[in-house]
Simulated assay, not measured.
Amino acid sequence: MTTGSNKPKSRYLQYLEIVTGSLDEKKRWRQYKARVKQLPDDYRTAVEALERYLMHFGPADGAGAMAMFEDLADLFEQSVADGTPIRDVFGEDPVEFVEAFVANYPIGQYRARERNRFTSAIARAAGENTATEERTDR
């Protein structure tokens, strides 16, 4: 393990990361939250609502989730700069928007794996040939 300056991390930092997770990911999270805090109130409220939703249904791994949250901050910062109304960002169905947004981040999506597993199991139960389809239930 190395720090940003290419120096080896101390044994203490190595153990700390084992217990708490990557310190770099925590730094990225704090930077993301600072960016969100700078948004106008209505945009910040929308981002925080979307963030809560994504905590439950978004990518589960740290790197994938951080890329998604950073892209979310980019999207809303650009929307503020362009004067795009919140409803124009989300459209009429916010759930449809978030599902399309999350689909761009497949890493750690247990739901996508489980959907594929479920669909394959039903196809097999129905006697359909699934040999040519990708098997995700192993």
Rank of each mutant, 00 (worst) to 15 (best):
R44E: 11
R44N: 09
T45C: 01
T45Q: 14
T45K: 15
T45A: 11
A46G: 00
A46F: 04
A49K: 15
A49M: 12
A49Y: 09
A49F: 00
L50P: 00
L50G: 13
R52A: 05
R52F: 05
R52N: 06
Y53F: 12
Y53Q: 06
L54S: 04
L54H: 06
L54Q: 12
H56W: 06
H56C: 09
G58C: 07
P59S: 11
P59Q: 05
A60K: 12
G62P: 03
G62W: 10
G62R: 13
A63M: 10
G64P: 05
G64Y: 03
G64K: 08
A65E: 03
M66T: 10
M66Y: 01
M66W: 01
A67K: 14
A67H: 08
A67T: 15
M68E: 04
E70T: 12
D71I: 00
L72F: 03
L72W: 00
L72I: 10
A73M: 04
A73P: 07
A73S: 11
A73T: 13
D74Y: 02
F76E: 07
F76C: 07
E77P: 06
E77Q: 15
S79R: 15
V80R: 13
A81I: 05
A81P: 00
D82K: 12
D82A: 03
D82G: 00
P85N: 06
I86T: 09
R87S: 13
D88M: 05
D88V: 04
D88H: 08
D88N: 13
V89K: 05
V89S: 02
F90E: 09
F90M: 15
G91N: 07
P94Y: 09
P94K: 07
V95C: 00
V95I: 15
V95M: 07
E96Y: 00
E96P: 00
F97E: 09
E99V: 15
A100H: 07
F101W: 14
F101K: 09
F101S: 07
F101L: 07
V102C: 01
N104E: 13
N104C: 04
N104Y: 07
G108W: 03
G108Y: 01
Q109D: 10
Y110A: 11
R111P: 01
R111N: 08
R111V: 06
R111A: 10
R111D: 14
A112W: 01
R113A: 12
E114C: 08
R115I: 12
R115V: 12
N116K: 11
R117N: 04
R117Y: 01
R117W: 13
F118E: 14
F118K: 09
F118V: 06
T119C: 00
S120R: 13
S120L: 10
S120D: 10
A121Q: 14
A121S: 13
A121R: 14
A121E: 11
A125E: 12
A125S: 11
G127D: 03
G127C: 11
G127H: 15
N129C: 06
N129Y: 01
N129W: 02
N129R: 10
T130W: 12
A131L: 02
T132S: 06
T132A: 10
T132C: 01
T132R: 04
T132D: 03
E133C: 02
E133F: 04
E133N: 05
E134V: 14
E134C: 09
E134I: 15
T136Q: 06
T136L: 14
T136S: 08
T136W: 03
